[in-house]
Design a protein around this nucleic acid. Structure first.
Lengths: 253, 253
DNA sequence: CCTGTCGTTGCACTCTCTGCAACAGTCATT
DNA sequence: AATGACTGTTGCAGAGAGTGCAACGACAGG
């Protein structure tokens, strides 16, 4: 909608491919060098690009800070966190929280028994959207046309023999998940890792997030992990309640 | 330099504070609502901004992807990684790699013995710049005026009794680090954690990155950790050599 | 010393962004 | 149900801002 901004922002993914000099940026944008220079300067002032010693530009440090703050500010994350911790303390396994956003699924929180601190390990990386249990729940709730369009657009990498192979299989799986209200990933991403997941819903019933418990085969079998399902669902429901109820966060007076 | 882009980018830190609606964004920018709307739309098209169900805007998922790619593309990181892994295998402790960029120090790689996979745990978060051993090395190499200006600008939080208390003390510490060519953090950030760090230099002798080994008191005492210094320096020097020598990465034919 | 490349600047032109005002949708109130 | 207040959205005319050009400066290589 805004040409100048559009051009400036197009520089970011371009630089994400690797450092580039002024001429290259101008070429790729299809604008004059002087124009590219001014755009880069503006991006630089805001810390989004950095000029390294060989004069070439690359993405800047401010991006990290912004990405961090973006995550901190998800209110669902704040509400969910204590519940995730509690579940983790109860069962001892890794607990994940994920959201869907315009074609992508992101982990936004994770609690691991061995490291009680928040870990942003996987966050921001492309999630294995076709196999992850939380992804299935989030996509299953999309409106039919959007779901179908997305399923067609996706790649279906065969991480393991149990990975979802193609769009029709994926859509069938989503349908199943939609009906039963929970999801699993049994060795679909990594041979020895199983997950069981449950949806978190907003006041209108739409799925706003999903959470999962993951554990390797060597610790608990898939069957044993499935016995945790009720506990996972209770936790998810508790978060849903707090989130949609707009509970005024304590203040018990 | 470019007003439109400048305004658009100013929206990002604004949204980093928390979600905001159109009116609020327009007010903070000091522009008409329709202007803010168009800017937000452009940001939205590029995925930097997301419109949540209550119509308010917040930072978008693309930021995560960009931040990730920005990190992947640091060539020093690529070169250093195998060296860090080797050092980690040899000594068993956590190994960090950090760079300086316009007032900030960032961890860009980390190898932890217990989790052999790459962990982005702390990356992107503001580093404890006044106490971290790697930060001292990176700042000690800055040109005198820049170093002084930065030291004056910083906050000096007292994480522990051994934290650097103020600018003069910090500048003295930097001078010492500069002369000896290595740095430590002995309980300055967390009471029980010690670090020893060495600089990585480019072809021109400037410090381009710094690496450190960290371990809690309960595993090794500070004295024992210091015995690793020669090993850390050798690793840092090896990385320096490969980085500045522009070694054509193997190909032994 | 010349010639090529690359980044930078000043300037005139005009294209694009801006702000206004009017419209549409939602919600709460009467 | 109608009213009002609030928000987000659109079309439009004016003008301010961004654009491309061309010339300059810095640097490296021959």
């Amino acid at each position: 909608m805004s040409q100048t901004v559009d051009r400036a922002l197009s520089i970011l993914p371009l630089l994400a491919e690797g450092p580039a000099d002024l001429g290259r940026v101008a070429d790729r944008l299809g604008v004059h060098k002087s124009t590219a220079l001014r755009l880069l300067r503006t991006l630089h002032e805001h810390g989004l690009v950095y000029r390294q010693s060989d004069q070439r530009y690359r993405l800047g440090a401010r991006l990290f800070a912004l990405a961090q703050e973006a995550m901190e500010n998800l209110d669902i994350r704040e509400i969910a966190h204590p519940h995730l911790v509690r579940l983790n303390e109860a069962c001892g396994h890794t607990v994940h929280l994920a959201v869907y956003e315009e074609g992508e699924v992101l982990y936004i929180d994770k609690v691991d028994s061995r490291y009680p601190v928040r870990m942003y390990s996987r966050i921001g990386r492309p999630v294995a959207i076709t196999v992850a249990a939380v992804a299935k729940l989030l996509l299953a709730d999309l409106p039919e046309p959007e779901r179908r369009a997305l399923a067609d657009k996706l790649e279906y990498p065969l991480y393991t023999a149990r990975s979802t192979p193609n769009a029709p299989a994926f859509l069938r799986e989503l349908e199943k998940v939609r009906e039963q209200g929970w999801a699993t990933d049994l060795g679909g991403h990594e041979e020895s890792i199983n997950c069981v997941a449950a949806p978190i819903r907003g006041a209108d019933g739409r799925v706003v997030a999903a959470m999962s418990v993951s554990a390797p085969n060597v610790v608990v079998t898939a069957e044993e992990l499935l016995t945790l399902l009720p506990q996972v669902r209770r936790t998810a429901d508790a978060i849903s309640g707090e989130y949609s109820g707009r509970t005024p966060v304590g203040d018990p007076e």
